[in-house]
């Protein structure tokens, strides 16, 4: 199937969905509307509200806050995950001792930490960064750990026979192997950084997309909630496109373009 036809079909699905939504919420069928616009809003209202917010400028401030939190959560989480992943993979004793605690910490649903973080770091951006950190950290940590441990023994033996010392092995063998694994989980970890930011905002903050959605919800402004969700969705799609572009540049050596987005 060629790209144009596929794109047309994809657009058709979106249009059909919007049309159905529109008809059910605005056209009376058998004397009454099947979906009450108070609870379900209408597509045109949502678009109009989104347009108004974007023109108003207030929305951009919220977007900026969420983006900053996402980037900081990803950067700190990835850095921590890489450092500890390396340490655990290279020091078997360390890994063995901390294994149950790492598993326990990872098993904890992170959302319950949000109120604690709000208490510790306040209602500003840092409590959201902390929440995103706990989500990103474990994904990157497990992938780097796996990547370092699963370096091909032949590649490693070859590098050692070439006379490489520990530092050179790190730079030429372990580090690129770990990066490969990290990038294979990049989409997931960036997504989780955003989840951490939005959930944190939703549970207590004074700015950001999560805050905006929560505000709208508290006054039963369904149009505002849907508008916030729309903006969030477009934001995630753009972020994912940026990640894909970075991935393509950094993993040129890989045989097949990475399609796994587990």
């Amino acid at each position: 199937m060629n790209r144009a036809v596929l794109l047309a079909l994809q657009l058709l699905v979106a249009l059909a969905f919007l049309l159905l939504w529109h008809v059910l919420t605005t056209v009376p069928i058998g004397g009454r509307k099947l979906l009450d616009p108070f609870f379900f809003s209408t597509p045109l209202d949502v678009l109009a509200r989104t347009w108004k917010d974007l023109a108003g400028g207030e929305l951009w401030r919220h977007l900026g806050i969420t983006l900053l939190e996402t980037v900081l959560a990803f950067a700190t989480g990835a850095t921590g995950g890489i450092l500890l992943g390396f340490a655990f993979a290279r020091r078997a004793l360390l890994a063995a001792v901390f294994d149950p605690y790492v598993k326990a910490a990872n098993a904890l649903p992170r959302v319950v930490l949000a109120p604690i973080f709000a208490l510790w770091f306040g209602l500003g951006i840092w409590s959201k960064v902390a929440l995103g950190f706990t989500l990103v950290f474990f994904i990157v940590f497990f992938n780097v750990y796996q990547g370092v441990r699963e370096v091909s023994p032949t590649v490693l033996a070859n590098a050692r026979m070439l006379g490489m010392n520990e530092r050179q092995l790190m730079r030429h063998v372990y580090w690129p192997a770990a990066l490969t694994w990290m990038f294979s989980s990049l989409h997931t970890s960036v997504g989780f950084a955003l989840v951490g930011a939005v959930v944190g905002e939703y549970l207590g903050s004074a700015g950001g997309l999560g805050y905006k959605i929560q505000q709208a919800e508290s006054v039963f402004d369904v149009t505002g909630v849907f508008s916030g969700m729309l903006v969030l969705t477009v934001f995630v799609i753009l972020l994912d496109a940026v990640v894909t572009a970075i991935e393509k540049r950094l993993l040129v050596w890989r045989p097949a373009p990475a399609t796994a987005t587990s």
Binding site: A157, N158, M161, W253
Partner: peptide
């Protein structure tokens, strides 16, 4: 390790990156 030897492996030993 034998520092005076070069070792050609049967399997692929090049760094793929």
């Amino acid at each position: 390790l034998n520092r005076r030897a070069g070792y050609l492996f049967q399997q692929d030993a090049l760094m793929p990156w």
